[in-house]
Design a protein around this nucleic acid. Structure first.
Lengths: 227, 227
DNA sequence: CGAGCCATTGAAAGAAGTCAATACAAGTGG
DNA sequence: CCACTTGTATTGACTTCTTTCAATGGCTCG
């Protein structure tokens, strides 16, 4: 299901700096790259967490399932994002490539070894975990208390911040993915987007329905209402 | 609004061990106790995070508000629980005493100082944050994808694990608190509890409506359906 | 170019929310 | 200690929002 692209190598400043590795660190960390085709699984819930991942290109969804198939996506991982960092030994989500995706991977064990001696790395591991926690906390508020329109507005603002290039937001994920992220059905998401389109808050570009331009971020923000 | 009970003192093995402090640590950490009356605020969202707290007696809710007053409770903190541990400098929730509550408090700065030199403490800070993250991740699934009955069943099982003594669960929080934790209204929570009562899954004890006996944990677990 | 996926839209059903009445418990003050 | 007020919980009737079911059309990709 995946294709190995490069071989193991030693420390690459760019990646390790993202994990908080001081550039003077003398540790060797094994690095490789893998590519996953659209829809394929990167790892499953409950699997041993052997690697930590960074998205080099593409996009990833991580989710939990109930026994009857209901799905909750906890996060989308876009280019540059690190995911799969668990403290325990098991992954707590299943992750899949949303589109064709290439990731860098780092052996978890080697990262822990470095963290043991390098307080800076340890602090950054904590800081990354805290960022994930903060995202989850905000998402609980959205899932527990916001209306469908508010959820979709919040989603658009989040994606706008994370992946807008040249004023256009090219969403990699389907309406179903968005719905499972927001705790809605895909129909409700579609209706909310249509309403926002009617309101003149956003426009669709070209032939696809996944290229969106935000025309009125202020109105969108007022629909979201964070405080 | 609060009453100072004891004065600062030096290291107390019991509390610090909970934070992962090795008992041989020679650091001095200032400790005190405070009591909060039912309903009073311990700290507010966006306030500087000066202290970390541990519940000595009582119970605490931590929540976020939307501008129009909708409330999402992210967690309940019961006896022994540590809360208020932020990585950034600000609290991300408001916390209030649900009933009269006494907490121990530790200066955040002193904890960070210790973590800097003691890898064991640093690891346990990370582990506590990871536990919070895991709870939030599970709660996202509940809020995004579970029905009202499933949510209430999950809540009862969680509380059963955390505070049942002598077979009876004495809930400190109101129906409204439960509702705001589960993303429901208090009426829906009340109806779900009534249904579970009809089903013979639980019984109410005495005159109050907050003492609950679980009569059929298996049936409750089948209503929850985690996998 | 055709099969299958994806998105939109409409109509109907359903789950939870809102409004309201009642009852009970707990706290207050005479 | 009792009357009264206030807060909390339950229950019913009705409304609303979201879901479900269904039909249609547009893309995409073999």
């Amino acid at each position: 299901m995946f294709v190995r692209i490069t071989t193991d190598s030693t420390l690459r400043p760019n990646t390790l700096r993202d994990l908080g590795m001081a550039s003077h660190s003398n540790a060797l960390v094994s690095l490789s790259e893998f590519s996953y085709r659209k829809g394929s699984e990167i790892y499953g819930e409950k699997e041993p967490a052997e690697y930590v991942y960074q998205v080099k290109s593409g996009a990833v969804r991580s989710y939990k399932l109930l026994s009857d198939g209901r799905r909750q996506i906890g996060a989308f991982h876009l280019v540059g994002d690190i995911f799969g960092l668990e403290n325990g030994s098991e992954h707590r989500f299943t992750t899949e490539a949303i589109v064709d995706t290439t990731v860098r991977l780092i052996k978890r064990q080697s990262l822990e070894n470095v963290a043991e001696s390098d307080a800076m790395v340890a602090r950054n591991l904590l800081s990354m975990t805290t960022n994930n926690l903060q995202h989850a906390e905000d998402h609980m508020l959205l899932l527990g208390r916001k209306t469908s329109l508010e959820r979709v507005a919040a989603f658009l603002l989040e994606m706008d911040k994370r992946l807008t290039a040249a004023g256009v937001m090219a969403l990699p994920m389907s309406r179903r993915d968005i719905a499972d992220y927001l705790g809605l059905t895909l129909e409700t998401v579609s209706r909310a987007l249509s309403r926002l389109h009617e309101f003149g808050v956003l426009g669709f570009i070209g032939n696809t329905q996944r290229q969106i331009v935000l025309l009125d971020r202020d109105q969108l923000a007022s629909l979201d209402l964070q405080p």
